[in-house]
Design a protein around this nucleic acid. Structure first.
Lengths: 123, 123
DNA sequence: TTGACATAGAACCAAATGGTTTCGTATAAT
DNA sequence: ATTATACGAAACCATTTGGTTCTATGTCAA
């Protein structure tokens, strides 16, 4: 009884190229529907539908401001995808490059925490 | 001229729940179509179509062995998804847990390489 | 060689998807 | 008060999608 009966999940939401482009746009700015539409060769209604789908999948969030509705990214929701993908990491031979990428992009104090935690743990 | 005119990309391929289940199955074993079908409430033909789609997206690879066609995972192809997802890492507040996960699962000699490389690099 | 098994491929179908146009309503600007 | 702007929602439409059944072909076993 808790919820949703979600029609669109995250996987379906990102399947469409237009929706992926919308995500990129909203990653940088919070934007109203009309402005988003200006980047695409289709009607405002079509874009509004895509936004509803992204919203249902919780990849995006819209708030009303005056007469416009501004959408922004809802970045936590990428976690489901990350988790799904991470299962397949074990079949992958290139962990090295993820590790490099992550290490290079994490704050140094966080990194210190990790080093300490992991070295204190029993092998 | 190089290729493909791919009809299905990786994003579409993983959009379908049945196909995601197939991927899980093939992660563990190389399996012929009939056996894969036995896990699903649909016809062999339907599963064969899903396999074609996964194959076109290069998530899976099939080889003929006698009269059967055995499919296995093609794990390199998850890279495109990882790369796409990684863009959104910058908007995420939970790098710590990825880092932990990766550090804990990487071989210790690889880890040593990383530590050395990163500390030698100019800030 | 005959039969059973494993698959490929074509034809078909209902439902979902991605778009359109039209109309109605709330908010902002003149 | 009137007009223009931004949106929501409904009705509609063509194409794609995810399934089916039927037929044909290659391979293994007796």
């Amino acid at each position: 009884m808790s919820s949703s009966a979600q029609k669109y999940d995250v996987f379906q939401a990102i399947a469409d190229p237009t929706r992926r482009e919308v995500l990129r746009l909203l990653a940088e700015n919070e934007l109203p529907i009309s402005e988003i539409t200006s980047y695409f060769p289709m009607s405002r209604t079509a874009i509004a539908k895509h936004l509803h789908i992204l919203s249902e999948a919780e990849l995006v969030h819209g708030r009303k401001v005056g007469r416009e509705k501004r959408y922004r990214l809802q970045p936590e929701s990428f976690a489901e995808l990350r988790q799904w993908l991470s299962y397949y990491d074990q079949f992958w031979n290139n962990k090295l490059s993820i590790l490099k990428h992550v290490v290079e992009n994490v704050e140094s104090d966080e990194l210190q925490v990790i080093k300490t935690e992991t070295s204190n743990r029993k092998k």
